[in-house]
Design a binder for these strands. Structure first.
Lengths: 210, 210
DNA sequence: GCCTTTCGCTACGGGTCGTAGCGTAATGGC
DNA sequence: GCCATTACGCTACGACCCGTAGCGAAAGGC
């Protein structure tokens, strides 16, 4: 959560309050819901959390890192139960991800921190480690299961496998984000059906749906 | 560009300086390159453009709307020449879009204004009209050509056609944005080949590439 | 020439940032 | 139990940016 250069055990003095940690993150999520990203201020978060502003700055260097940590835990909810087919698995995880994006705290925060990360390498790494990786393992699981079912050909070149996982991840996550935030249209069952059909069968399959 | 309630021709008094308009937009792009979204200030843009800060506020209500207009014109560069096949058309437009996203002024600005638009309906409409629509017509052209070539089935239900165009747009644009900004990996020819294969032939076709 | 609008300029109140300094509170080491 | 060390709440601060108001001058339409 907060960066430490020395291990926790070898330190002396008064320890950091874990209650304050959680209160700050919770206050940050509440402030995101009420105010959105741009109107959220460090002073307001501190007041909501019942701590001093200096306590925030001892833990997080700026608003970006604080918000990443506050939102990251929400991605722990994502899971991928085995629903018996590749298309069903895709639909399920897409709907889960869309529901997460619909929450006001993630909706306003995710794009903002990604935008900031284009000019802030440490922030980019923080996002990758605490958010992107949590989503990516779902792709790995889904592909592996589909191959075990025989829905996809078995692996040949490991490098190609990695590249394909990356591709699927960017396509699925990117499509959902773009639909929800840029097009601002609902990610409903009908849309998810078209998306999973496209992924499994290609454009011809989707156009033929009509 | 700037909202007017009354038509331009029926107005009296000193007209707005079009030189100032262009100088401000150009200064905004330059400031985006140097400073990025979060450190760009209205006062700095005014100084760069050689105009007074009040002149900016007569034209744009806030930073968001200014930046949308400053970046929107860059999307005019996108075009879709007929390259003879659906896959080639897709690859070409994806590479164009990726090159646009690589420019520092768009990279830092696009995600930021989309993030703001989640809590600002007028801004969302402005983005839709001046950026999203310019990209979307490329999808319409590409699908129409593919159908004329016989690469895709002919239309049946017009509603399905619209839905499919929307889907393709979100998938392609979303995938490129996610790859470039979230995964922060290059959108190179190899990746584009995998993406277009996925779109045309589905997951089976991509995995079989290896 | 008169009216209208924009222009550059200056100044301002209000808000946020991030830090410094202080006295106090809570640990671990001895 | 005492001490060194660290975290805490609080206050205050300079720096910065915001968005607006008011002014006289400039540039058009009629």
């Amino acid at each position: 959560m907060c960066s430490r250069t020395t291990p926790r055990s070898t330190r002396t003095g008064r320890p950091r309050s874990t209650e304050a940690d959680e209160a700050i993150l919770e206050a940050t999520r509440a402030a995101l819901v009420e105010l959105g990203w741009s109107k959220l201020t460090m002073g307001d978060v501190a007041t909501r959390a019942g701590v001093a502003k200096t306590t925030l700055y001892r833990r997080w260097a700026n608003k970006n890192e604080l918000v990443v940590d506050a939102v990251a835990v929400l991605f722990d909810e994502l899971e991928l139960p085995d629903l018996g087919s590749l298309q069903a698995d895709i639909s399920h995880v897409v709907l889960q991800f869309a529901a997460l994006l619909e929450r006001p705290e993630t909706k306003t925060a995710l794009m903002a921190v990604v935008a900031e990360s284009t000019r802030d390498a440490p922030l980019r790494e923080r996002i990758r480690a605490s958010i992107v990786e949590r989503q990516k393992r779902l792709v790995l699981d889904g592909r592996r299961r589909a191959q075990e079912r025989g829905e996809l050909p078995a692996d040949r070149d490991p490098a190609v496998v990695d590249a394909t996982d990356d591709l699927i991840f960017d396509v699925v996550a990117g499509a959902v984000v773009h639909r929800a935030l840029v097009s601002a249209e609902p990610v409903d069952a009908a849309w998810v059906n078209r998306l999973s059909s496209l992924l499994v069968g290609g454009l011809g399959a989707v156009v033929a749906l009509g």
